[in-house]
Computed example of a mutant assay.
Amino acid sequence: MLRVDQAGEYGATRIYAGQMAVMGDRTPAARMIAGMAAQEERHRRHFDAMIAARGVRPTLLQPIWDVAGFWLGAATAAIGPEAAMACTAAIETEIDNHYREQLEQLGDSDPELSEAIAEFRAEEIEHRDQALAAGAERAPAYPVLSAAIRLGCRAAIALSKRI
C-alpha cells in the first residue's frame, strides 16, 4: 500500500508541476493548482518517511511516473484551465476510490497508515470538488478526457502495486 500511495502522490506532484509550467502562477486556476500541489507534496513527504521507516521499496516505475505525470499536466494545461481541472477531477475520483478500498482492507490493522490515508483522502475529495466547481466538466471532450485519464490512473495504480 505504501509503495502505490507514495507513487501516486509523487505522480500528482509531477502533474501539477507540468500544469504550472504551462499556466504560470497568475490565473485563479494556477493559484488553485499551486495550493493543491502543496498538499500533494506534503502527502508525498509523509509517505516517503513511512517508506523509509518501514523499509518498503518504492516502485521501480518512478522515473516513468516522473515524465508521464509532468507531460499529462502540461498537456491538459495547454488545452486550457478547464482541461487542467478535468485532469484533477478524474484523478481524484480514482484516488478517492483507491483510498476507500485501502481503508476497507486495513480495518484496524495499521492505525498509522489508516489515519494518513483517511486524512489525505479527505483532501483529495476536496481537490476533486474544487476542480469540478472550477469548470472541469466544461473541458473540451470532457467525457473522453476524463475516461482516458481515469483509465490511466487505474493502470498506474495496478502497475505500481506490482513493480
Rank of each mutant, 00 (worst) to 15 (best):
A7M: 02
A7E: 02
G8Y: 01
E9I: 05
E9M: 06
Y10S: 00
A12E: 00
A12V: 04
R14N: 10
I15P: 06
A17M: 07
A17K: 11
G18L: 06
M20E: 05
A21L: 07
A21T: 12
A21W: 11
A21K: 14
V22D: 02
M23L: 13
G24F: 02
G24Y: 04
R26T: 06
R26Q: 13
R26P: 00
T27S: 15
T27P: 10
P28W: 09
A30C: 13
A30T: 06
R31V: 04
M32Q: 14
M32N: 11
M32F: 01
A34M: 08
M36G: 05
A37W: 01
A37I: 00
A38N: 12
A38P: 05
Q39P: 07
E41W: 04
R42M: 15
R42V: 15
H43D: 10
R44Y: 10
R45C: 02
H46D: 13
F47G: 05
F47T: 08
F47W: 11
D48S: 14
A49S: 15
A49E: 15
A49R: 15
M50H: 12
I51Q: 12
I51E: 13
R54A: 12
G55W: 09
V56W: 08
V56Q: 11
V56S: 08
R57S: 10
R57V: 03
T59D: 13
T59K: 08
L60R: 15
L61V: 09
L61N: 11
L61D: 09
L61Y: 05
Q62K: 03
I64N: 09
I64S: 13
W65A: 06
D66M: 10
V67L: 09
V67E: 06
V67Y: 06
A68P: 10
G69I: 01
F70L: 09
F70V: 04
F70A: 05
W71G: 11
W71E: 14
W71Y: 15
L72I: 14
L72F: 11
A74H: 05
T76R: 10
A77M: 08
A77V: 11
A78D: 06
G80Y: 00
E82K: 14
E82P: 03
A84L: 03
A84I: 04
M85F: 14
M85V: 12
A90H: 07
A90S: 15
I91P: 03
I91K: 03
E92I: 02
T93M: 04
T93P: 01
E94L: 00
I95L: 09
D96I: 00
D96W: 00
D96K: 01
N97I: 04
N97V: 05
N97S: 11
H98E: 05
Y99F: 14
Y99K: 08
Y99C: 10
Y99T: 10
R100I: 08
R100F: 10
E101N: 13
D108I: 03
D110F: 01
P111K: 13
P111E: 11
P111V: 07
E112F: 00
E115H: 12
E115T: 12
E115F: 07
E115S: 12
A118P: 06
E119G: 06
F120A: 12
E126R: 15
H127T: 04
H127S: 07
R128A: 07
R128G: 06
Q130N: 07
Q130C: 01
A131S: 13
L132I: 11
G135C: 03
E137S: 12
E137V: 04
R138W: 07
A139C: 09
P140D: 02
Y142L: 11
P143W: 02
V144L: 11
